[in-house]
Nucleic acid binder design. Structure first.
Lengths: 109, 109
DNA sequence: TTTTTCGATTTGATTTGCAAACTAGTTTAA
DNA sequence: TTAAACTAGTTTGCAAATCAAATCGAAAAA
């Protein structure tokens, strides 16, 4: 397939900037609390919450709601193996597309 | 700024997959006809048309409507210097963020 | 003449992404 | 003790974005 066609069809669940940031942060941390993740990404709580839900639905993340002294909620988030694999695959695909694009430029005219 | 915060704030005009494909194709071609660009990117005419309009509004592209024998429309599209600069800046920023993210992983825990 | 094709643009439905409003509980202050 | 303010997150409402289908104006074919 033409590299530009592949580019136009990138995995949007991961490609979206806020979610790419979340996934990258979680890959580095392997586990993080909600508020820490908010600090890392600079997202509002609302947006962080809804992006996390989407990633959870895709089984890229595992979200765990704990309560400190049974009272204060504390949510911890982990990236799953599937999530890590998807992130790696995303970068790999992007790199490959860029490489092919360069080649294409030289050989096709 | 934290790399993840930068990631969450990438230039969305260029970041969108369809437009990234268009911009990349045009950087390789420097000039292309509408239908050729459609073939390269695999987009429908409708989507190609509307994405081109957005990129034109941002002055990343120059769109020229010619008529063959005064009748058949033939639209040619060129990337502007501003567009090329924006695309280069986009990749550069993305590469930098990825690099910093790797560093961050090693040094912050 | 009508019908189909060609090169696009516009329209309309759906989906997103964001911020503001809200929830459920806790701590502080009066 | 009761109200105000804070904490940790979720839900809601809506503008903007995306995508495919419908449309457009002209030309060629039947």
């Amino acid at each position: 397939m033409m590299p530009f066609q592949e580019m136009a069809k990138l995995n949007k669940l991961i490609h979206e900037p806020a979610r790419l940031a979340i996934m990258s942060a979680l890959e580095a941390c392997s586990m993080a609390e909600f508020l820490f993740l908010q600090e890392l990404t600079g997202l509002t709580k609302g947006n962080l919450s809804s992006h996390l839900s989407k990633l959870e639905r895709a089984e890229y993340l595992l979200i765990n709601k704990n309560y400190i002294r049974k009272k204060i909620p504390q949510t911890t988030i982990q990236i799953t193996h599937e999530g890590e694999a998807a992130l790696r695959a995303y970068w790999k695909q992007l790199d490959r597309i860029r490489e092919v694009t360069k080649q294409w430029q030289k050989t096709s005219f």
